[in-house]
Design a protein around this nucleic acid. Structure first.
Length: 588
RNA sequence: GCCGAUGUAGCUUAAUGGUAAAGCAAUGGUUUCGUAAACCAUCGAUGGCAGUUCGAUUCUGCCCAUCGGCUCCA
């Protein structure tokens, strides 16, 4: 039997159990989902809103009831009935009645399993005998809007996971533990990378020294790649007159996601204009473009900036580094002629894939998002741009999925979701064609015939938000960063106080072979009065790539004893040999 | 924003309507140590504002923040 069918049937069994335990319950819907199922309920009852509060503490009781039902060998029976009959059957079930009303045709199908009957098109298992009662588990309770619309009432959703074999359930629960261990919010604190302080505000990141070094390494690498590939560095302010956002159209489309305006007249009467914290960099780059007249010979023109932007994300959506209110984009805008578009998209995509690969991401899900219902620009341009994106994808031999109608109103786009080391996807790279802003800002270039033309604009952020990208990096590597990224690279551990002098000599040799800056930033001598074991433990928990232990033996032989993260003690080595080793590893 | 849960020292956790306990960390001292936690001492906390109470960290309300979801992510 298909596991999805079992999951779906389990949703019905969940509903059946709930019906027995809480007879007044109103039922929403209950589909199978990835790894399991859920069912939405409205628990009618006695509190001031007329509801019964269900808490995670109630789950074991419901789960027990489900197992009881499964044991009873309940049969699933399908029946086609008329809508009229259905309305009678589901009297008192407002959500079901709403669904019946919306379904096409004159009849609907229902499934009866024991005392529980549900409106459902199926398919289902024949009998609960097919369910392995040891391979499912109710996991959590959450609020969920009826039909996913926040204008609708919020129902109580009970989630469960289900598999065919008990072992699979165990593996799944193990994986969840692994996910928890890799949580960048926990590792961020353990490795002292960043924090969020409630006196500063939710979604605003404090980068601690080690985190800031990591961020800098990531940013420097990305920027270096852009400068090598024909981008020009620009820098722009964090605020601008609100008028700018009126031109760009953001105040109209995006107001509730922007931090509200600053009213300068509150401090100075002469100030007539209100200012606005920037939610994006594009208008600034456009105005640099517009600061002079451009020839077709200037194109493609590429401006890049590590631009810090602020967006008012709803409080409930914030999450560690991956969803924040202030973040830095590795942003760039490219303007080109229609003829250049394909080539630009192709090379941008290549660059994106190269950079992601360097950071250790080898697997991706790539989406092409096409024209939505509401759009600006001509359908012909949309077709052209979409074809140019497809061309770029084909040039790079990329398997992609089409997100039909998923484009932004101003143009089609390619999104890359990277897969981390335990298979989760994260949206990072975005590559968008924009017909809107060049029009709104009246951008032009002079073509071969001396005529003014409108350039095509590409927005692209390859890492996306640096904050999110680092969050993903932390989870991908579980905090054990490759040498070139690690913000703390080498610890030198003298065995006793008589060996501190030699430890310093080792550091000096590294300075000579690498640089004083490198040693200051990345090498630490642990001369505290602690045991060697303690220092090793500390180094391991801090996930330091190399721990160099030095004692009398090493002094005599002029070597160091290397403990490599994940490998343990790999033996003694001359310092020169070690330098060679790390020089190799320092290259991204 | 919505539904639900949570908030005790820098971190992890304990306890209580009546003196808030411990481990790690930090600081000071002893130990100078060969690959994942030496020893002793010291410092240090109930998210905020109200209310109930003789007394609130504990009960109630509001606020703030965090967590799990929903919705959102131009």
């Amino acid at each position: 039997m298909q596991i999805n069918t079992i999951r779906h049937s389990l949703a019905h069994i969940l509903a059946a159990a709930v019906q027995e335990l809480y007879p007044q319950t109103k039922f929403g819907i209950g589909p199978a989902i990835e790894n399991g199922f859920y069912y939405d309920f409205e628990f009618v009852g006695a509190d001031k809103r007329g509801l019964t509060r269900i808490t995670p503490g109630d789950l074991p009781k419901i789960e027990e009831k489900m197992k009881e039902l499964i044991k009873k060998d309940i049969k699933f029976r399908k029946k086609i009935i008329t809508k009229q009959e259905a309305k009678k059957l589901f009297k008192g079930q407002p959500y079901k009645l709403e669904l019946i009303k919306e379904l096409p045709g004159k009849t609907v199908s229902i499934y009866k399993s024991g005392d529980f009957t549900d409106l459902c098109k199926g398919p289902h298992i024949k009998s609960t005998k097919e369910i392995n009662p040891k391979a499912f588990k109710l996991t959590k309770i959450a609020g969920a809007y009826w039909k996913g619309d926040e204008k609708n009432p919020m129902l109580t959703r009970i989630y469960g996971v289900a598999f065919s074999k008990e072992k699979e359930l165990k593996d799944y629960l193990e994986l969840q533990k692994e996910v928890q261990k890799r949580d960048h919010r926990i590792l961020g604190e353990k490795l002292n990378l960043f924090s969020i302080n409630e006196n500063i505000g939710p979604g605003l990141i404090l980068w601690h020294p080690k985190g800031a070094v990591l961020k800098r390494t990531v940013e420097n690498y990305a920027l270096e790649q852009y400068l090598k590939n024909g981008y020009q560095l620009v820098a722009t302010p964090h605020i601008a007159k609100i008028h700018l956002w009126e031109i760009s159209g953001h105040t109209g489309f995006y107001k509730e996601n922007m931090f509200p305006p600053m009213h300068l007249k509150e401090i100075s009467r002469e100030e007539k204009d209100n200012y606005q914290l920037k939610p994006m960099n594009c208008p600034f780059h456009i105005l640099i473009y517009k600061s002079k007249i451009h020839s077709y010979r200037d194109l493609p023109l590429r401006y890049t900036e590590l631009g810090t932007v602020y967006r008012y994300e709803r409080s409930g959506t914030l999450h560690g580094l991956t969803r924040v209110r202030g973040f830095t984009q590795d942003d760039a805008h490219i303007w080109c002629t229609p003829e250049q578009l394909s080539e630009e998209l192709d090379s941008t995509l290549k660059l994106a894939l190269k950079i992601l690969k360097t950071f250790g991401f080898k697997k991706y899900d790539i989406y092409l998002s096409t024209q939505p219902e509401k759009f600006v620009g001509s359908p012909k341009n949309w077709r052209k741009a979409t074809n140019a994106l497809i061309y770029a994808l084909k040039q790079n031999k990329i398997d992609y999925k089409i997100d039909k109608g998923g484009g932004v109103f101003y143009g089609p786009k390619i999104d890359i979701k990277i897969k981390d080391s335990i298979g989760r996807s994260w949206q990072c790279t975005t590559l968008q064609v924009d017909f809107n802003l060049p029009e709104r800002f009246k951008m032009t270039y002079v073509d071969k015939n001396g005529k003014k033309q409108q350039p095509i604009m590409i927005h692209r952020a390859l890492l996306g938000s640096i904050e999110r990208f680092i969050g993903v990096l932390i989870e991908h590597y579980a905090g054990a960063f490759p040498f070139w990224l690690a913000p703390d690279k080498i610890w030198i551990i003298p065995i006793g106080k008589n060996h501190i002098k030699y430890a310093k000599e080792v550091a000096k040799t590294l300075e000579k072979n690498l640089s004083p800056e490198f040693v200051k930033q990345f090498v630490r001598i642990l001369d505290e009065k602690e045991t060697v074991s303690k220092k090793i433990r500390e180094g391991e928990t801090q996930k330091i790539p190399y721990l160099l232990v030095v004692g009398s033996e090493e002094i005599k032989k002029k070597t160091i004893r290397i403990r490599k993260r994940g490998k343990g003690d790999i033996g003694q080595e001359k310092i020169e040999a070690f330098v060679k080793r790390i020089k190799r590893e320092l290259v991204p």
